[in-house]
Design a protein around this nucleic acid. Structure first.
Lengths: 241, 241
DNA sequence: GGATTAATTCAACAAGCGATGAAATAGATC
DNA sequence: GATCTATTTCATCGCTTGTTGAATTAATCC
């Protein structure tokens, strides 16, 4: 029976450097979506360019090669991550859009859906912000297609609002659509800065305040009748992906 | 006299591998601000994390070590870049804010100043967007100080507007200030996406349209009297850094 | 129970990274 | 003219990166 000593000769190679797991499949297979979770966490922490395969593997508690087994490359993994996010976001949006509500409340619900997918996921926001411009060709293509789908949903909503007389008839729909989605995402990153500036108010509440403030501002800007009384809005129900 | 042959033994080290410049100072010293220009270009192209010292040196046409001679480290160079930008932006802003104009036109002029520093510099925008949240501690500190200065200028402007009755009295100033500056920056990145969507309109014009649309929307949102007739705004004069 | 397949880890690669220390040289100083 | 100093390049270090190919093993099929 070997005796293990706590004293190790410095510089000498350890006989069993790390008590590593045996090779071969584990008892319970690794769920690829668990790997995506890890990747997402690393992207969120390290930024898109700074995220390394090794860090993701560390996060997932497996070997980097396993990521290459399940996903062809780093870029593919990234695309898979986008796919997963959007594939739950788009149907949720479509569902909300069909509800029979006044436009103002419908828009607010839409924000609830987007927020549920986007809050607590700074990595995803960074992607949507940054990668559209600076990502590789294939990532940009994936992203462009998906975002286009979402913007079409929103554009239809705004067009209906103009038709029903709830919105100003002179709105330039693609611009308004873009402003609506992008500035909302932008606000999410407000938390750390704003909560410094409003020291007394807890971060989550500061964010909610800013969201409401922004939405009311936006609505006053696009409404056909900006002075019409606005019924108070409920806090949006976050629909988590 | 040695005879030079065009045939080179493959794998053999070249006797004079590259006809490199002699060491020592050049006839004309390298202007450090030229190095910053190169760095800025690379940051804009490769993103903040992806920008490498070697790429900057290539861009500037010098050896990487020279960057370490003029700037202590990559991070210092980054800070110097920020410093240069803000040190021209802040005074320009202060000057515009003092002009005796109606608030709406003053805000529009402010955008002209910010735009002049921010347009055509996607790298800088990426920094302000991304690094606040994910940058290193020292970069974040530099950035936070500088942005705070600018936001104070804007906050004063909004406070005056409320006092003079031009703005709604119930505005939450820190939130509005933030929304004003950040969403404006955000619009700048709209160009590539929007110009795809509005195929007929040239990019520069699409951006100008979006800016004006956004500004009018914003103004309707914050004005005390949103239905007051708005005199047309001149295109902002861009004040380049 | 032997062969096959799918899932996992190990070890290593070439390339690129930030950074450093020494060498070289043009111009200023004495 | 010798010395010094500021500026530039070279060669290299140690480290991390994305990726690959071989080795290993659990589960599955015949």
């Amino acid at each position: 029976m070997p005796q293990y000593s706590t004293v190790v000769e410095i510089g000498a190679p350890l006989p069993h450097p790390a008590p590593s797991r045996p090779r071969g499949p584990k008892a319970t297979k690794v769920d690829p979506s668990h790997l995506l979770d890890a990747a997402q966490a690393v992207f969120a922490r390290e930024g898109v360019q700074g995220a390394s395969i090794r860090a993701m593997a560390r996060e997932a508690g497996c070997d980097p090669s396993l990521l290459y087994y399940h996903f062809e490359s780093k870029e593919r993994m990234f695309a898979a991550l986008l796919e997963r996010k959007f594939s739950s976001l788009t149907p949720a949006l479509l569902e909300v859009v069909e509800r029979p509500l006044p436009l103002r409340e419908k828009l607010w619900s839409v924000l609830g859906v987007i927020g549920g997918h986007v809050k607590n996921d700074a990595g995803f926001r960074a992607v949507v912000r940054g990668q559209i411009v600076s990502g590789t060709e294939s990532v940009r293509a994936t992203l462009a297609t998906r975002l286009k789908g979402i913007q079409q949903i929103l554009a239809r909503l705004f067009a209906q609002g103009i038709a029903s007389g709830e919105l100003r008839p002179d709105l330039v729909i693609p611009v308004i659509t873009f402003l609506f989605a992008r500035t909302y995402m932008e606000i999410q990153d407000l938390i750390p800065i704003l909560s410094e500036r409003m020291a007394r108010i807890p971060p989550a509440q500061a964010l909610a305040m800013a969201e409401l403030e922004w939405f009311n501002l936006f609505w006053r800007g696009i409404a056909a009748d900006p002075l019409a009384p606005c019924p108070p809005l409920p806090f949006p129900k976050e629909i988590h992906p």
